[in-house]
Each structure stands twice: as C-alpha cells, then as structure tokens.
Design a protein around this nucleic acid. Structure first.
Lengths: 387, 387
DNA sequence: ACACTTTGTTTAATAAGTAAACAAATGGGG
DNA sequence: CCCCATTTGTTTACTTATTAAACAAAGTGT
C-alpha cells in the first residue's frame, strides 16, 4: 500500500516545482514560491536538487522595476530526446523531439512490413532516426508507438487492419534500446496531444475518425483506457438497430456509417471505382460531385449522432474531432456543429483538432514526458479558442 | 495548489489506518502495521489519535496460539447517524443508518409535494426519521438525496418527471440541519451502493432502468459525473437513427425502447388500458400474455444493445443492471446475458444488482461515510460472485 | 549616500516517520 | 513451576523535510 513518508512529501513538492518551471518557465524561485504556496526555503532546496539533476538551469536575470533582480529558471528541454511512432497501415511515421515535444526530425516510411519483420523494421527505423540526433546527457528517454487497434501497453490485442496482434512490441524494443516503450491506441495518444498542446481541460474526449472510429478518453486529467485497453471503441457502438452488417457480428455499428472507410468505399461502389483515396474524394466534393455531397451529408449526420451520444455519456468539458475529412474540408466542422445544435438542448463545446495529423506523434511525446519527469507537460499556448 | 507537508502525510496515513479498521476490522495494531507497511510506532500513534476522536475503540483480545494476545480495534459505527433519501416521483423513502450503513429505520411517504412545499416537506420527513434515533457523539453526519434527474450537487438541473428544478435543496437543508447535504442522481448513488456493498472493482458501470435509463459511472474508484452532472444520461443516446421521436427533440433515443415507461405504455396502448403498473405487467408476463412476452423480448434486445454500447465505450470491470423488470422477473438476467454473448466477441462481466431497490439509499449512505471519514467504505462481503 | 524593495539563503524550531531496543503478555517444554 | 521463545505494543534516538523568521544580496530611486 502507498503510505505517506518524507520521501513522498519531497516527491510531491519536487514535481510541483518542476511542473511550474516546465509549464510556466522561465520563472524565478520567488515566483514559484508564490504560485505553489511552498516557502522560499523549500523551493530553493528543491531547485538546487533539480539543477544538480540537470533538469533545470539558471538563465539571466529578469528586468523588473524594483528590488533585487530575480534569477530566471528554465527547463533543460534539450538534455534528452523522445521518439514517437505512428504505426499506420500504409505508412510508418517516426518523429523525434526534445523534452518539450519540439520537432527534431520526422521521417515517413512505407509500411511493407509483415508480422515476421515488423519489430526488426521498427528497430531499423528508430536507429535511423536516432542517428541524426546530437548527444545529450539523458539520451533517448522513451519510445511511444501509436497503433490502430487495442493494446495492453505491450502487445496489440486486436487490430483490424494489420496482422501484428500478440507480438511483444514493447518488450523487444525496450530490451533493445533500454528505455521505456509504450504501445498505445492512436485515439488515446491523439487526445493526449490535443490536451497538452491545445485544449487543456480536465475532461476531454477525442473523437478520431479514420479507417475506423475511436474515442480517446481523458477523465480528471488522466487517460482512461478501460481494463483491457478497449475503452473508447465507439466504432462498434450500435446506432442503428437492424442496420448494416459489421464484421464484428453486430448490425448497425457506428463504424459502418461514419468512418472514412465506410464513406470512401460507398463512393467507390456507386461510382464503380476500384478504390478511392480521401484526396480524390475531397477533390470530387470540391468540384460539386453530387454523390460526394450526399455522402458527406450522411457523414455529418452520423458524426453528429456519435457526438450526441458521447455528450450524453460523458458530459465532458470539450470534444475534439480529428478526421481526414475535417482536415481536408475545413468547413465541415461548422456543419457538424450546426447539426449538433439541432440535436442537443444542452449544447457542449465541440472543437476541431488543433494538431491534425501530428496529434498521435505529439501525444506520444507527452506520454514519454509524463513518464520520464513524472509531470504532465502543458504547452503555454494550450488555451485554444473554445466556444 | 496542493503541496506536500507533514500534515498531509499524517492525513494520508491516518486515513489508511482508519480505512483498515473500517473495512477489515476488528484488527490489531500489529496487523494494521503489517498490511499497510507503516511501522508499529506510527500505527500506535495514529490509533491513539483515532481513539481520542471516538472513531475507533479497543475491544477484547483475539485468541492466538502464540505470543502476546493482540488488542483488537473496531470502528465506532454507532457513534453517528446517516440519513439517506430516495426522492421518487410517487414516493419519498427516508432511510437512517449507522456509520457503516446498517439499517436504523426506513419510512416511505407518498410524494404529494409541489415545488412550493417539497423542501419543508423534506424537513418534516427528516425530523420524523431523526426523532427515532438515539443520541450519539457525532449525531447526524450528513444527508444524501437521490433524485431522478441531473443535479449539480445542490440543485436539480433537469428532471423530466417532477418540477423541482432550481430549488436550493442542499443549501436549505444544510442550513437547517447544519450537516453536509448531497443531492445526487439516483443512478450515481445506486452504483456507489453496488460498489461498496457488492461488487468492489475500480471501474464499475451501473445501468439503472426505471422510468428513464441512466448509467452511474465509477472510474478508478471515483464517481464520474461530468462537468454538469450530466454524465451517464445514456437514455438519450441514439440507438436507432430515424427511430421513435423523443421529447428531447431527437429520434431513436434508447429511452424510447428500453425504459419501464416505454414498455409499460406500449403495453397499455396495445391492450387499450388507461395505464399499467410494473406489477400488473409482471403478472401478465407470468401468465403467458403474448404481448407482454413480445415486449419483454424487445426489452431484452434493446438492453443488450445498451450494454454492448457501454462495454465498447467504457470497457469496465463489471456492469451491474438494476431495473424493476429484472427485480420482478429474475430469469431476465440470464436472457440478457445470452443476447449479449451473441453480440460481443470480447465478453465482459454483466451482473444483476445486489441491492435492488435499496441501492440508492445505501449508495447515499456510502457518500456520507466518504465525506465524513474521508475514507471509502467497502463491506467485508463485497465480493459477490462475478462470472 | 541612503532608504526601500525584492530575491534568495541561512538558521532554529517543529512535525512526523523509521529502526531498533525494550516492555508486556502469553503459552509450551523441561 | 519456571524459564524461554514469541508476538504485541511502546519508547527512544535519529533522520528528513517543511516552516517561519531573520538575514544577506542585489538593485532602484530620491
């Protein structure tokens, strides 16, 4: 059991100080003391330790009008690196950053890997990305991998679009690189990214609409994944009794109506095409193709049902939508909001993704920051307009 | 901000000791030390303080084979009382208990009260209930009120079946009785009761099917109510696009298919009755009335959809169902489980309510215990069969 | 030059936990 | 019947971390 001890006090206060420097820095000892409620003596002692551990450094003095000039403290963001991977079905994206998520390099690789060579493929990709980074005191601090499926942190439990289930991703990579490795669902990483960089509220739902439909759930500032990592699998909530058949065995699952896959394949079928990309579909829509218009109308309607259901289930501060359609067709967002206003007496805040296609990668970075520092990163300008 | 301090350590450890005595008592100091990881010295100091505060007392020694006999410690459950109210549409139930939720009296009153006299009516009812209790050191420790609607803790925000919205229930009663008063949704209290007395798991969803349909949500051992107390309003999640019209303005809300109100009114309509109670309906069902059979079949089907959607959204440890139908017709539970097994590849644990019609009242008691002691009560036999 | 402010450090006091020794209580074996 | 092993619970000496207050450092304005 967790008992209170002197170590615990120091831990709590040390994290509090570090959090203040990380998220509000540069900042002086006196300002930290005023904001946190810790005495100046305590702050000084903790800061000395943080400087010793190369997490914090003194930079010049601030210009104030009166009194002794404060010594500003700054988080040593470049003393280590983070590696974040988006394990897509068609592409693998590798992103490296400093300890505040600042871009240190992004590489995209086609995903030709099979079940047999995906792990060694990732090792190759990671080594390639790391080779371009300068030496730092901490080196690599962790690896986050976003997958399109359910995970238990180490393995993929269930993923519809690739055959990687049961492979010990995190174990192998962490053996190889000697750092913590987190394997997490893409919707979950995505919502973490949105929270840390854009919409900093305690209860945030990220609605991710890509091939499938998933929700990342943050409750009381913590990611909620359920007992098997299956929470937020709203693609298989039923919104139409006796509706379309779903591979999952049920009828009328949301994913059969409101996913990219559903819309694109319906479009391809009607137009008798072999397949269609989201870019091709967007072009058709922009050129006024009536089929595309009708399908996107359907999409809007079903997404607003999904949001309605999430609002009535979670009553969160904010719901943030991320989908290829809303990225490619910005006006879509207002149309979804209009539909929703018709549905909901009690209106709630629906906002567009602030990070769009890099939300997974930045969310991964935040996960590693939290693990390495024990403190949640929150970008200074993470108060995007919410209305 | 919350800083670590000596007071905080003592608080944490004191609560840890009290929790052990409350939930695992009678128990000796040595046993508390072994279980919690605190040293014997710390436990002794804290116990002395708890005895001083009349929360814990020493009872006789235990019979052990070897060594000095331990002094058993017990929680002073009868040193205070709790009052719990179920503010039903037709009836108001008042329940008094000791500090472990043991029955000290239950009274049922018809609810003839209007918006103008409901608060004074409650004061009358509460005084009547309190008048039968013996004097205790702490006296009344708190009042919990379960309402059939959404609340913000003090007022009713929205309740479809009575006109009490906006009345300052908690403020008035707490002024009058000088104790904390909690106004909470019935589904929320219900799930608290199920957790504390029956199914002690960290992530528990309580599906309450009465006039409407609501879910109580416990995540990481904490009740989650959303930012306006509207979380769990799953009666208005849409499960049938273009389905039946709902007073909320949408079409196809769950509540139009799977609530007592929906089933009973459909039955009354078909049978051309003025209205029908759940008892009358149950009788018809038991006598083999084909309409009742068909409607209950529909009920099972829609409830299994609701459970499917909750499972895919929350992936909890357990979902517990509480409804007038399952209470009156026990075999219903297995039928719902069978339906669900067809739907879900990943099967999850669905269990029947352990507390049935008193879950709201006992949940209210647990809420007060938590507030008064700062510790969650968990009944010793709260490990009901889960399969 | 001096008073005033603000920052950051030092010092003494206090609270709370820990480990280890000790006292108390008890049963069993010689 | 006495002594010892054993277990419980208390006491003691020590350590750690916070706090309040005094103090030193650094800078500005009159």
């Amino acid at each position: 059991m967790i008992t209170g001890s002197k170590k615990m006090i120091r831990d709590i206060n040390s994290h509090l100080v570090l959090e203040t420097v990380l998220n509000e820095g540069p900042v002086s000892r006196a300002a930290i003391s005023a904001r946190s409620g810790l005495t100046k003596a305590t702050v000084s002692a903790i800061v000395a330790d943080l400087i010793d551990r190369q997490l914090v450094r003194e930079i010049g003095s601030d210009d104030t009008s009166l009194g002794r000039k404060p010594i500003l403290l700054e988080f040593c963001k470049e003393n280590g690196h983070i590696l974040s991977i988006d394990l897509g079905v068609n592409a693998i994206t590798a992103f490296t950053s400093d300890l505040m998520g600042n871009d240190c390099g992004l590489k995209i690789f086609p995903n030709n890997y099979t079940r047999d060579n995906i792990i060694s493929g990732l090792i190759y990709i990671i080594n390639l990305s790391l080779s371009e980074l300068p030496e730092t005191p901490f080196g690599l601090t962790g690896i986050a991998i976003g997958v399109h499926g359910a995970t238990n942190g180490n393995e993929i439990i269930f993923a519809p679009y690739y055959d990687y289930s049961g492979l010990p991703f995190a174990d192998r990579l962490s053996e190889h690189f000697h750092v913590p490795v987190f394997l997490e669902n893409e919707a979950n990483l995505s919502v973490i990214g949105e929270k840390c960089f854009c919409y900093n509220v305690p209860n945030l739902i990220g609605l991710s609409v890509h091939s499938g439909v998933g929700a990342g759930i943050i409750i009381n500032d913590e990611l909620y994944t359920g007992i098997n990592g299956n929470a937020g699998e709203i693609g298989h909530t039923i919104i139409n009794v006796n509706g379309r058949e779903c591979p999952c065995g049920n009828h009328g699952c949301l994913e059969q109506y409101a996913s990219e896959r559903a819309i694109l394949s319906e479009y391809a079928e009607i137009r008798r095409l072999d397949g269609v990309t989201i870019e091709e579909f967007t072009q058709a829509y922009n050129e006024g193709d009536p089929i595309a218009l009708r399908l996107l109308d359907q999409f809007i309607s079903y997404i607003s049902i999904a949001v309605n259901n999430l609002l009535n289930t979670f009553n969160p501060d904010v719901i943030v939508i991320n989908s290829g359609f809303t990225i490619n067709i910005p006006e879509l967002h207002e149309l979804i909001r209009d539909q929703l206003k018709n549905r909901m007496k009690r209106y709630c805040t629906l906002v567009p993704s602030g990070l769009q296609d890099i939300s997974i990668l930045l969310g991964g970075a935040c996960l590693i920051i939290k693990d390495f520092l024990g403190v949640s990163y929150c970008a200074k300008d993470s108060s995007f307009k919410i209305d």
